[in-house]
Each structure stands twice: as structure tokens, then as C-alpha cells.
């Protein structure tokens, strides 16, 4: 059975790219364009993996990630964070170390844009095999 991947990403072009790559590699893909949509999607279908962008309008990826890691029914879903923002200089946050040493677990994978198709697939496969 194909693994289900939920892409939460607000840039349409990048979302399409991710979707294409994953579908080409045999995954079933759902997309959401912001945190709220992602949450709805999570409630409706239980994905095997979530790729999450951090900076999004409405509900940010950070907020959604916090929920993913605190709600018991979502706690075990692996999450890969894919972002172009490594630092939020306005709020003095470095996302690469943001979750280190906090009460919530670190993400299972962390990818920085720009990324190629190979890298995406490698990380997705690695995270899924580690978790299962």
C-alpha cells in the first residue's frame, strides 16, 4: 500500500514540485497551503508523513508543528521540515536549533531550500524506514 504524505506549503510552485517528485516515486500526496488547512487535512486523513514549511500565512508551520507533537493522535506521525528560512532575524530565532532542548521533540528531518528531487526522496525514505 502506498504511503500517504501530506505537504503543507504555501508556495504553489514548490508544492507542485514536491507533489510531482513524491508521486513519481509512488507516494500518495495531499497538499495544504497553510497551517489551518494542514490541520483540517490531518484530522480528516491520517498521513504517514508530513512535510512542513515554517513561514506561512494564517497559521505558521511552527504552530502546527507544536500541535502535531502535543496531540496524542498525531504524536507519532513523522515530520520533515522544509524551509527556506533558516533564521528569523526579526525575532532572533534560528530554526535549525529552535527545537533543540525544548520540551517538544525535534523534527525527524530538516531540509533547506533549494533542494533537489534526490535529496527529498532520500530524506523521506530514511524517515519512513526509521519510524516504521
Amino acid at each position: 500500500m502506498n504511503k500517504k504524505v501530506l505537504i503543507v506549503e504555501d508556495v504553489e510552485e514548490f508544492s507542485t514540485f514536491l507533489k510531482t517528485v513524491l508521486e513519481d516515486n509512488g507516494y500518495t500526496v495531499m497538499t495544504a497551503s497553510n497551517g489551518n488547512e494542514g490541520e483540517d487535512m490531518l484530522a480528516r486523513e491520517k498521513p504517514d508523513l508530513v512535510t512542513l514549511d515554517l513561514m506561512m500565512p494564517e497559521k505558521s508551520g511552527i504552530k502546527l508543528y507544536r500541535e502535531l507533537r502535543t496531540k496524542p493522535e498525531w504524536k507519532d506521525i513523522p515530520v520533515i521540515i522544509i524551509t527556506g528560512v533558516t533564521q528569523d532575524t526579526h525575532n532572533m530565532i534560528d530554526f535549525r536549533t529552535f527545537f533543540k532542548g525544548r520540551s517538544i521533540a525535534e523534527p525527524d528531518g530538516y531540509l533547506e531550500k533549494p533542494i533537489g528531487a534526490d535529496e527529498i526522496i532520500k530524506t523521506v525514505q530514511k524517515v519512513l524506514t526509521e519510524k516504521c
Binding site: V11, E13, F14, F17, P114, G116
Partner: peptide, 10 residues
């Protein structure tokens, strides 16, 4: 980086 990500996807 974002644009490059976009172009790379394209």
C-alpha cells in the same frame, strides 16, 4: 534560496 528552490523545482 527560495527562488533557487523554485527554479530547481521548475
Amino acid at each position: 534560496k527560495n527562488v533557487l528552490g523554485m527554479i530547481k523545482g521548475g
